[in-house]
Design a protein around this nucleic acid. Structure first.
Lengths: 146, 146
DNA sequence: GTTAGTTATGAGGATGATTCTCAACAATCT
DNA sequence: AGATTGTTGAGAATCATCCTCATAACTAAC
């Protein structure tokens, strides 16, 4: 849990006139220590001192600040992870059975080609593109043995 | 609203021992007539004779049958569209402001390169890949003027 | 084409993730 | 310190979605 991470998070919060409080720092720590997107029950499991309502509120604040990203799923809970700006650009493998998500990256050449193609498409449709999301949907290793 | 569409839908339902009832046919008709993914309130608007609870139930059945696809969003309602098997493989432009979604396709070469890259990545992670989802997230034309 | 058995419908109720409320608390400024 | 503003957390409120169950519609066998 490097200090730079917390410094960067604090900076981003300050930009939108928000404080980097203990609860928010704890959230960033939990997400950083996980390496994969977590649902809110999972976050509460890992730090039971946190209050549910504050976790919801603070994850929303951190999302606005660009510190965490919310990943919506077909399953019951959304999941959260540190924003890409704190790591490298990546995508997700989503298990349709259990809802677990893990990260992957594409070869740079593919990513590049994709990026320019998407840019072109978006502008043609009148969209101002912000980012893109790419998920592979399938069955994870453990769920295949059932 | 071509008959082939309804025939194909009926076939898919029969495969999972479900009937192609009037309510389900109406849903397929509404989605086919829209050209973009609809939320359930939008569906009810377009055919007020439908019962909310039946729409939820039937969209779930149609999803299981592979006739419609559910698109989860950051906004309040999920959206539904006819499955790709009834049209061509495509992706989505998602407006972060109003939640509207529209469709686009990639140049075949890019799509191909992406597909093989994703296949490789998934297998390496132990996933059995099923499909992929690619969304461009941004601001739609009308929301840019605000 | 009537009967028996199965499946679908829909109105309202239940569920549960998320958000809101508000009183107590903490930080910041002068 | 006092005043102002932002944050917390426990519980209540919201609302999209799903469930229940009595009724209706279909299907198959006779």
């Amino acid at each position: 849990m490097p200090d730079d991470l917390h410094d960067a998070a604090a900076l981003r919060l300050r930009r939108i006139s928000q404080r980097y409080t203990g609860g928010r720092r704890a959230l960033v720590g939990v997400l950083a220590g996980s390496g994969r997107p977590l649902s809110i029950p999972e976050v509460l499991e890992r730090d039971p001192s946190l209050a549910e309502s504050s976790v919801y509120r603070n994850l929303a604040v951190l999302e606005q600040a660009g510190v965490v990203a919310r990943i919506v799923t077909n399953h019951d809970h959304n999941r959260y992870e540190l924003s890409e700006r704190f790591g490298e650009h990546h995508h997700h493998l989503v298990c349709t059975n259990c809802g677990e998500i893990s990260d992957f990256t594409l070869p740079a050449a593919v990513e590049q080609a994709l990026d320019t193609a998407l840019e072109r498409v978006a502008r043609r449709a009148g969209y101002r593109p912000d980012t893109h999301r790419l998920d592979v949907v399938g069955t994870c290793a453990t769920c295949q043995h059932e």
